[in-house]
Design a protein around this nucleic acid. Structure first.
Lengths: 228, 228
DNA sequence: ACAAAAGTGTTTGGTATACACCCATGT
DNA sequence: ACATGGGTGTATACCAAACACTTTTGT
């Protein structure tokens, strides 16, 4: 028994961090929430929002905690991207960091919180220089998000409850980085029973007005269960 | 500057582990290398091969080191599955573990090393009870491997240099878990220029003899470059 | 002779793509 | 009247799936 304890204690402990990539859709553009580092190393440079894992919380929970601090939101869609463990990824000290991406609706953002953290929304197609291995994390996250978006309905996490088909198409084009044919896109979307047309009409973005649709989470959950 | 150091030191350090899922193909079956734990907790129960990350090595390198210790192999195909960070995943102490899977050729295995570690090859369709969250890691790894195998030629990591098309088909069926049509499979494979027929004939598995094929790594690397 | 695995093409159905015009409305 | 985005159907090309028999050779 004593020898066993010794096995664990003989090894070195290190800091474990989490880094959150918070995506949203603002005015049709995919944006990422970035902060300015408030401490060395790389003080003042652009950075993802991060934190350290405490010994009484899971890594996933640490990521939720950091996201909540920053955005004030709960029940956010979040996926792990992976662990980043290069030796000198953080020149300050040895830190192994687990990266996550989150998708949130622009309307839900608590602007004052974001401001309190010196955070800003930046268009993903026009990112500034970032510290450490954060650019790599972002590339991996976008890749993972694209793959996921092609086979699961995660895009709705970024849209408001009611949306027009044009908004949805623009979003898919933004995520996947390539244009889509309008008629083919609409056909494909409409044959999915989880996407329901409502009686509501959006008169903001067009003179004629566009039907608003909504995504039926429950119906989707059932259909997934059925496929198993 | 002092405050900044304080920021790091105020946080808690913890053990960071790696767990390796080593797959191979033995007699047409996908097998995983398991060990019996030699210390508490869960002494004697089945476990993945793991270790702790040292402060002077990257997490990836720690995984390679563990794999090398166990198999004697270098230059092995390896992919990260992700970080596993639940609070009580290891009842002995707080450990955040990063899981990897590796694919190796059966012929390359150094049997004596494997034995020295009390390790055994176990058919993935007939796994024993495993400690901690290792069953979850394995499910995730297999899922990741399937996805990868459908769009990248990782299956060749499991086959010897020369293989028959029937072997290759059996392997794909094993990885993907579903049967394939022989003629369709062969057509699809043969229209890939990276898979080259050789003049060699395998007379072991059939009376008639089957052509041996080989995978041209270099040609594949070039074709990937070309697509970018 | 027969068992056992190797090898080989064609047909068919479905899915993905390309494509252009009219509609409704606010200004 | 016109500018702006909303909405609609068809023809075609391509790809994936289904399918069964002959060949070779060791025993």
């Amino acid at each position: 028994m004593f020898r066993d304890q010794g096995f664990y204690t003989a090894h070195e402990k290190m800091l474990v961090g989490v880094d959150c990539m918070v995506f949203t859709l603002r005015e049709g553009r995919l944006c990422l929430l970035l902060t300015r580092r408030k401490f060395e190393p790389a003080l003042g440079s652009w950075s993802l929002m991060g934190g350290f894992v405490k010994s009484d919380e899971s890594v996933d929970n640490a990521a939720y905690r950091v996201l909540h601090q920053l955005t004030g939101l709960d029940n956010v869609y979040m996926e792990q991207v992976g662990a980043f463990g290069d030796l000198d990824r953080d020149p300050g000290e040895r830190v192994v960091s687990v990266a996550y991406y989150a998708l949130i609706k622009w309307d839900d953002v608590y602007i004052d919180r974001v401001k309190a953290y010196n955070a800003q929304w930046v268009d993903v197609d026009n990112l500034p220089e970032l510290c450490f291995d954060h650019p790599l994390m972002i590339r991996r996250a976008i890749k993972a998000m694209r793959r996921k978006a092609t086979c699961e309905p995660i895009a709705f996490e970024l849209l408001p409850e009611y949306f027009t088909l044009t908004q949805l198409q623009n979003l898919y084009e933004t995520i996947l980085g390539e244009p889509a044919d309008k008629r083919n896109f609409r056909r494909r979307i409409l044959e999915n029973p989880c996407i329901k047309r409502t009686d509501l009409i959006d008169k903001v973005t067009s003179r004629r007005g566009a039907s608003l649709y909504t995504f039926d989470e429950e119906l989707y959950a059932q259909s997934v269960k059925f496929k198993m």
